Simulated assay, not measured.
Amino acid sequence: MNSDKQRKIHVLLLSIVTIVFIWSIIKPKSYLDWLAEVSPAVVIIIIMIATYKKFRFTTLSYIIIALLAILTFIGGHYTYSEVPLFNWIKDEFDLQRNNYDRLGHFLKGLGAIVVREILLSFTPLKKGAWLSSITISIMLAIAALYEIIEWLSTKVSKGGQGSKDFLGMQGDIWDAQWDMFLELVGSILTIIIFTKLHDKLLRKKSDQTK
């Protein structure tokens, strides 16, 4: 895939993400919760755009970033515990909770590819077991940090409705542990499934920059 074609794909991804972002900001359930949910994704996208000419990720990484941003914008619009499709699944299959947040945390494990690419590009780490282990550890640390931020939000707002929507625990006292576990599993599976493809794309990117 040549550089011009890749750039067109990247622009298309950004356009789709922008459309979903605009939709998400129109009458969300709570603007405060929306802001808390989408802010990290928006910051990451801004950084990606600002550094695009200096450093370009593989298209796989951009696809992952776009997917995770879209999932975040949807969750921010409805709140993670009230996404309609998953409410329907909950009712249809008599589940105890809306599992959109469970899916979201599992899919966040895809971010391991982005972290892996950053480590290969900006650190002395080489491909192999250590790289995979450190990548997965960073993903678990990010998941834990997010849970700490959610916990702190309840302390700042003193358990208000906004913090409850942000937490999305739905009565599960082990929600934080589940979220971290699912992101860990997602990260491990991502490394197992996508490493060979990622390495191939990295080689192609390296050849294009020579």
Score class of each variant (00 low, 15 high):
Val11Tyr: 11
Lys210Glu: 14
Thr18Lys: 08
Ile148Asp: 02
Ala41Val: 08
Thr51Asp: 11
Leu201Gly: 06
Lys53Leu: 11
Ala143Leu: 04
Gly171Lys: 11
Ile136Met: 06
Leu32Lys: 10
Thr154Pro: 00
Lys200Phe: 09
Pro40Trp: 03
Pro40Asp: 04
Trp88Leu: 14
Asn87Val: 02
Phe86Pro: 01
Tyr62Asn: 08
Ala36Asp: 11
Trp88Ile: 13
Arg7Leu: 14
Asp199Ala: 08
Lys204Val: 10
Asn98Arg: 00
Gly159Tyr: 07
His198Gly: 11
Lys200Asp: 12
Leu184Glu: 04
Lys53His: 12
Leu67Phe: 15
Leu182Phe: 06
Ile16Phe: 09
Met139Ile: 07
Arg56Gly: 12
Trp23Pro: 01
Thr123Phe: 02
Asn99Val: 14
Val38Lys: 01
Leu201Gln: 06
Ser137Asn: 08
Asp101His: 00
Ser3Ile: 11
Ile46Ser: 04
Tyr80Asp: 01
Lys155Asp: 03
Lys126Phe: 00
Tyr62Asp: 07
Lys5Met: 09
Thr18Asn: 06
Val156Thr: 00
Ser39Cys: 10
Arg116Gln: 09
Ile46Cys: 01
Gly75His: 02
Ser132Cys: 06
Leu35Lys: 09
Ile192Cys: 11
Ile89Phe: 15
Val156Tyr: 05
Lys108Asp: 10
Ser163Val: 00
Gly109Cys: 02
Asp101Leu: 00
Ile45Cys: 09
Ile65Ala: 13
Ile64Met: 07
Leu95Met: 11
Ser15Leu: 15
Trp174Pro: 01
Ile193Asn: 09
Ile148Pro: 07
Ile16His: 04
Thr195Cys: 10
Tyr80His: 03
Ile46Thr: 09
Asp172Thr: 02
Ile138Ala: 05
Gly171Ala: 09
Ile142Gly: 04
Trp34Ile: 05
Thr58Asn: 10
Lys127Asn: 13
Ile134Cys: 08
Thr190Val: 07
Met180Ala: 06
Lys158Arg: 13
Phe21Cys: 05
Asp91Ser: 14
Arg56Lys: 15
Gly168Ile: 02
Lys54Thr: 13
Tyr80Met: 01
Ser157Trp: 00
Val20Tyr: 03
Ile49Val: 15
Asp101Ala: 01
Val156Gln: 00
Thr123His: 02
Arg116Gly: 09
Gly168Lys: 02
Leu202Ala: 07
Ser3Met: 12
Ile192Val: 10
Glu117Ile: 03
Thr195His: 14
Leu184Ile: 04
Phe122Gly: 07
Thr123Ala: 03
Ile134Glu: 06
Ile134Ala: 10
Leu12Lys: 13
Leu35Glu: 10
Ile134Tyr: 05
Pro124Arg: 03
Lys8Glu: 14
Leu95Gln: 13
Ile142Met: 15
Ile113Arg: 10
Asp101Arg: 00
Gly162Asp: 07
Trp34Phe: 12
Gln208Asp: 12
Leu197Glu: 14
Gln170His: 02
Ser187Cys: 01
Thr135Asn: 01
Ile46Tyr: 03
Ile149Met: 13
Leu120Val: 02
Glu82Gln: 11
Asp165Met: 15
Thr135Tyr: 01
Lys8Ala: 13
Ser24His: 08
Gln170Val: 00
